[in-house]
Structures are given as C-alpha cells and as structure tokens.
C-alpha cells in the first residue's frame, strides 16, 4: 500500500495566490523519492503541505489509508512522519543530546535505545553530545537534524535539501547515510538541488516546474530524459 499520497494539491501561504497547482506525488514502501526542479518550483512547499503549514485550496493528503489533510504538525509527527527542514533545522542553544531528545518529545518512556541507535548512525555526535548544536559545523548540524528526525523511528522521513550548503565530501556522506537509513526500511521523500546525485540515490523522482507536475519516472529514466538533463543536470 502507498505510504504517503498527495492527491491534486493546490496550496499557498495564507490567502495568497497558490504556489502549488494540482500536484500529485506518492511514496511507496521502502522507496526513496526525489523531488527536483528549478528554484521557486514549489518543491519545499509540497513538503510543507503534508504538515498542515500551508493553506490548502484543494486536494488531499493521505498517510496510508488515513486522510491527514490539514492536520497540524504535531499530529502529523505523532503519526510517524518526520521532517527535516532545509534551514534552521537544529535548536542552536540546546545540546546535541537535547536536540535528539526533542525529536522524541512525544515518547514518554526512556530514550536510551533510540539515542544509542542514532549515535550508532552518527558516531561523531556521541563525543559532541553535550555541546550546543549551534556551535557545530554545517555537516554536523545536518547530522543532528537527521538524527533528531530518526529518534521517533519514523514511518516516513521527509528531507528538505539535506545537502544544501555542504561540501561535496559531506554531501556524499549524507547521501550514503540516506541510503543506509532507507536500507533499514524507512521510506524517504526528499527535495534536492543536487539533482543528479539525488536521482542516482532515489528509486523514483518527480520534476516540478512552476508548482506543477512536469515529469516523473525512475531515477535512471529521469537522468536519461534529454529535457530533464538539459534543465537540471547541466547538459
């Protein structure tokens, strides 16, 4: 069964003119799906629509067989959908460990197992666990942000440009981690500027242009598509 579905979503900020027009996306179990497109195409907006952060003019959002259209973020998180925003994705004055604990705010029991799991995925965070997250490098912050989202053992992980602003080496590392997280069974939907790399990691991809669906297909198909290549892959 489909994990996450956006069906004909038209949405924008407040009552302003919509940014997304009739956008449909879906995520299947075990998949990595990449959303690519030029700047201002509404890629991040599409993710925020899932979290009830936008005004939906039309369309529906489904998680499995339950409709979650317009639910506030805390409810969506409680259902097991975790989101890593592109910027301001850590609490700078909280320590690394406190950041991770906040990711599991809705859990009441002890968090030791989850913390061990996340530190296992990101060993550098263990030694910095008592350091304020705001003092870390960009790559390490990204790890904190990913780690925080993984604290809940999410049903769906949504990443908004996880490699933006990172050095190629760090970006490579993040892509590898995404592969590992997905390998452990978590379906991932991500928005990426780094289209070629994203499509090579992803099972499928969507291309949004001007807030509308333009192309879709497997990662390999999209890379091979001459128009996609011309527009986003640098020829």
């Amino acid at each position: 069964m489909t994990v996450l579905t956006l069906r004909g979503v038209t949405a924008g900020y407040g009552d302003d003119a919509p940014i997304l027009h009739d956008v449909s996306l879906d995520l299947q179990p075990g998949e990595v799906v990449a959303i690519i497109g030029p700047n201002g195409a509404g890629k991040s907006t599409a993710m925020k629509a899932v979290f009830g952060l936008l005004h939906l003019h039309g369309g529906q959002v489904w998680l499995g067989d339950e409709e979650i259209t317009g639910e506030p973020p805390e409810r969506v998180v409680a259902r097991g959908v975790c989101f890593v925003p592109q910027t301001e994705n850590v609490f700078p004055n909280l320590t690394v460990q406190e950041n991770l604990e906040m990711g599991a705010y809705i859990l009441t029991g002890p968090l030791d197992d989850r913390l061990d799991h996340v530190y296992g995925l990101f060993p550098p965070l263990l030694e910095k666990r008592n350091q304020a997250a705001g003092t870390l490098s960009g790559g390490q912050r990204q790890m904190v942000a990913l780690g925080r989202a993984l604290m809940l053992d999410p049903k769906v992980l949504m990443l908004d440009e996880p490699t933006a602003g990172l050095s190629p080496a760090y970006a490579q590392q993040i892509f590898e981690l995404i592969g590992r997280i997905n390998g452990a069974g978590t379906p991932i939907m991500m928005v990426e500027q780094n289209a070629r790399q994203a499509l090579s990691v992803a099972h499928r991809g969507y291309v949004l242009v001007d807030g509308r669906n333009r192309h879709q297909g497997t990662g390999a198909d999209l890379i091979a598509d001459p128009e996609v290549a011309r527009m986003f892959l640098g020829g």
């Binding site: 973020p73 805390e74 998180v77 409680a78 989101f83 925003p85 609490f91 700078p92 909280l94 906040m102």
Partner: peptide, 11 residues
C-alpha cells in the same frame, strides 16, 4: 530557540 522547528518536531 525556534518555534517553527519546535512545531515541526511535534512539540
């Protein structure tokens, strides 16, 4: 620190 992120985190 960040009300927006706090909401997205489920706080």
């Amino acid at each position: 620190d960040s009300p927006e992120l706090a909401r997205l985190t489920g706080i």
